[in-house]
């Protein structure tokens, strides 16, 4: 076990006394100021709070696409602060699945190719990649749309493809920033159903930022962030 794998295996995410400051002109903006958060393996956590409270900032730190000003962020047993840029990228490709508000599919790739994309960073053969991508598409119910391009899909379908892309590498943690923020009620329900499925049946730890109380109600735990501090 390497030195960076420090946390208890049953803790998926551990945020310890984390500060995140931004420097704007001469002003220092304290977005997160000594924040602590533990997310056990297999938990579905909803992160709520007013706009500008630092939800996305916290999620980005957990996902390893941003670095804390101070404090420790340990995810899937790895302390992210100790990783170099390249190591962090490799770590993300194995441990994190991203679900974005606006899906962020690659427009020139079809559904299957979009799902296959993160597998290009794995040692799998082309056939294995195709098979796994197809399986993921099947699980989200879009096997018959594998050759469709994002522009030919509805918003709800696009988000389902994005979820397939997020889970295809079998990551430890799924991070979702307002995954239903751009969807109608019906599609939002489908997406939340899927996320619940991945949490319950595949044991995925999920950290989801949302403004929608109905979405938050699907989670095990709801935490509220206000001015960079967790209030419950």
């Amino acid at each position: 076990m390497s030195a960076t794998e420090v946390a208890n295996k049953t803790t998926a995410v551990s945020v310890q006394n984390v500060r995140k400051f931004y420097q704007r002109d001469s002003m220092q903006i304290k977005v997160l100021d000594g924040l602590n958060l533990e997310v056990p393996q297999g938990e579905f956590l909803a992160l709520m709070g007013p706009s500008g409270s630092g939800k996305t900032t916290l999620l980005n730190l957990i996902a390893g696409i941003d670095r804390a000003t101070s404090g420790r962020v340990v995810v899937a047993g790895t302390e992210l602060g100790s990783l170099s840029e390249g190591q962090l990228a490799k770590w993300r490709s194995r441990n994190v699945g991203f679900i974005f508000q606006f899906y962020n599919l690659i427009p020139v790739l079809n559904a299957l190719e979009n799902v296959e994309l993160p597998l290009l960073l794995s040692p799998l053969s082309k056939r294995e990649r195709r098979e796994r991508a197809m399986t993921a598409l099947r699980i989200v119910g879009l096997a018959d749309r594998s050759k469709h391009y994002p522009g030919q899909l509805s918003g709800g379908q696009e988000q389902r493809v994005a979820i397939a892309r997020a889970v295809v590498t079998d990551p430890t943690v799924l991070v979702a920033d307002e995954p239903t923020g751009d969807l109608d009620h019906q599609s939002a329900e489908e997406i939340l159903d899927l996320m619940q499925t991945f949490n319950q049946e595949f044991g995925k730890t999920i950290v989801m930022v949302t403004h929608d109380p109905r979405a938050a109600a699907r989670a095990h735990v709801q935490r509220h962030l206000d001015k960079g501090v967790l209030t419950n």
Binding site: A63, F100, N104
Partner: peptide, 14 residues
């Protein structure tokens, strides 16, 4: 730009 951000988040290197 956003596509590049997405690719990098997924783990593609600089």
């Amino acid at each position: 730009t956003r596509e590049i951000g997405t690719l990098r988040a997924l783990g593609f290197s600089r």
